[in-house]
Design a binder for these strands. Structure first.
Lengths: 205, 205, 205, 205
DNA sequence: GATGAATGAGTGTTCATTCAT
DNA sequence: GATGAATGAACACTCATTCAT
């Protein structure tokens, strides 16, 4: 029942994360200063330091909080049989995770040079490599390796690039998902014969 | 007959570009200071300002010098009939341009948030959109639009991601090219029936 | 009961203003660097920026704080009948204001070229024009207009030039006031006949 | 026969002075950089150094070239009997000198803080004191000293302030001259009784 | 008579961070 | 749970000046 205008009690940490993520993903990490964040929240810079040890720490917390679904997805996938269906499901779930943490992924996509130097850079890279490992065959040919990588990148880069195009957002999202699925399917031929992308609809069994 | 100790030759501008590009692409634009660049060249910061009006101006000059081949490619493509063969050739040539300006494209790929705020951000975006327009059919379906975008992104992102994997660099490059070609081919079906990605070999005429 | 070594009191802002005004009026605005100001205060440059947004902002604050009496004088004068007595009183009070903000006016007098480009340049000019408007008749002849302007300038320029001459400061001040009063009196003839400067003693009724 | 567009032969020194004076008087000495001057002349900064040893040297040369008439006036005046008529003539001639070197005097008027630190600062001050000495009686009372000073300042400050007012420039100039003459006349009473400013028309002998 | 290339010392400004309160 | 006041290190940039050519 608290009035809307007054600063809410215990949610400052969350509000910092929200504002920080918005600014980081909009202007970039380096170009977003703690002063800006503080001003937008109408607190002092020092207040940020009560909740986070450093600027980098804010990013780490965002990565951990918003990236959790992906980690869970990885854990799940590692318990599954490595069939094509599993892989398609990985794509589908990853696509869903991206949607719910869009700003974070946009930030990581557009600030790669920066992120690389941050502590999470390594963790992010490892995560991507793990996902990649889940998608490709162990003895996959080079072209199929590229297909798997591309499947992942499509979802990252594609989504943001698509945003500026016309069309219903849901439709665009689905198109991206379909191409990613297609790629992963093509990269995982049944036995020795490559699967037909056509047969790789988004439809789940 | 110039002494070896004083390199007061006319190549300073070029040397600045080289070092700057190396540092920009390695540590990012914001994290590379003009002091670093100057120190690595063993000149003063002020010397940089003799050759370039601002830090941003260095990037602009790099973009203009190294990006010229792509602009020429675009001019060429616009004069060609918009057949599948032309599009495949666009991919091939673009792939080749990327190779010769690898550091620049890595920089632009990994510093998107920064580049967006630079003057060249807009120009780069326009260039990508033009290329994209050259690849896709006018009335292409959403999925085919995504395929074309992905073809381009694969070459950008894929190349850098691949670098860290094992295998012969030339082989990897070729695999990337093949997937990109495949995607563009699939996005440009003959008549009304969409082509199967599988049938989209790199096969040249 | 605070220890003598750390002057971390709440007067820093004021101290910055004091030192800045002293240096600005002594060496000029451009030739006074923030480093100098900071050093003289034994704080860092960054501390200045905690209290003032920019270098110019320091000047603005000085102008606003020290110039207030003049603004009040203007408000007062605008409520009075526009008689010769009022005008003489304006001169007297303005003369008094100059005394209490001597350094500021010296700064503005000696850095006109600089001040013109500052935000306060316009405000200062407007203030002078308002004062001028309060002194002169609406349909004053050119010569009388010049007399009013000169009355004001005498107080500005005269006071600083006089400082270097010998004689009791109070006497010099009074002489300046007398000439200014004389000029304004001459510029405001009773009816059609110009008043005799002689009759314009500083003596108030 | 030289075309108007091409840089004329031997007049570069003069052109530098012209441009420099214009910029100095418009933006101030410190805010005018040699780069600006060079750019406006379409030569390099180094070219300026062929003609002038330092930036300050440009000002010195301006002061010497444009201020010569005043020095000549002083020489002339020192040979004259120190009568009121001579003094009035000094005012008249000084007024004329100001007109022909308007930009220089505007510069010196508006950059006093700067000029004070320049070599010419002292020379200018001495010149003013000499003029002042020529105008006032040896045993003049304080008020009369102020009148003489004001006479000089009116011509400096008044002229620039008047410029922004409406009215025929020549008329304004004459009004300034008249007030200055009036002041000097009032400061030089016949016998022991002070003259009335009123009786101090610009009337020439 | 002038340029091309450079320097050294400085400028105002911003930043992430600290800490006593 | 947060602030007020400050710091140290850095930054992009500008300036007057120099000198070999």
């Amino acid at each position: 029942m608290s009035s809307a205008s007054q600063p809410r009690r215990g949610n400052t940490r969350q509000r910092i994360q929200d504002v920080a993520l918005e600014l980081f993903s909009e202007h970039g990490y380096e170009k977003t200063s703690l002063r800006e964040i503080a001003e937008q929240l109408d607190v002092t810079k020092a207040a940020l330091y009560y909740h986070f040890k450093t600027k980098e720490d804010i990013v780490v917390s965002l990565f951990e909080d918003l990236g959790r679904p992906v980690d869970e997805l990885i854990v799940w996938a590692q318990e599954q049989p490595r069939t094509l269906e599993t892989k398609q499901e990985v794509i589908r779930r990853y696509h869903e995770s991206l949607r719910s943490a869009e700003a974070l992924f946009r930030f990581m996509q557009e600030n790669q040079a920066t992120v690389r130097d941050l502590t999470i850079g390594l963790r992010f890279k490892e995560r991507m490599l793990t996902l990649y490992g889940l998608l490709k065959e162990d003895d996959a040919e080079l072209v199929d390796q590229v297909r798997c990588l591309t499947a992942l990148f499509t979802m990252h880069a594609g989504m943001f690039a698509m945003q500026e195009m016309e069309g219903d957002p849901e439709d665009k999202r689905e198109a991206v998902l379909r191409v990613a699925t297609e790629l992963v399917t093509a990269a995982n031929p049944p036995g020795r014969r490559p699967a037909r992308p056509d047969s790789a609809q988004t439809a789940s069994p």
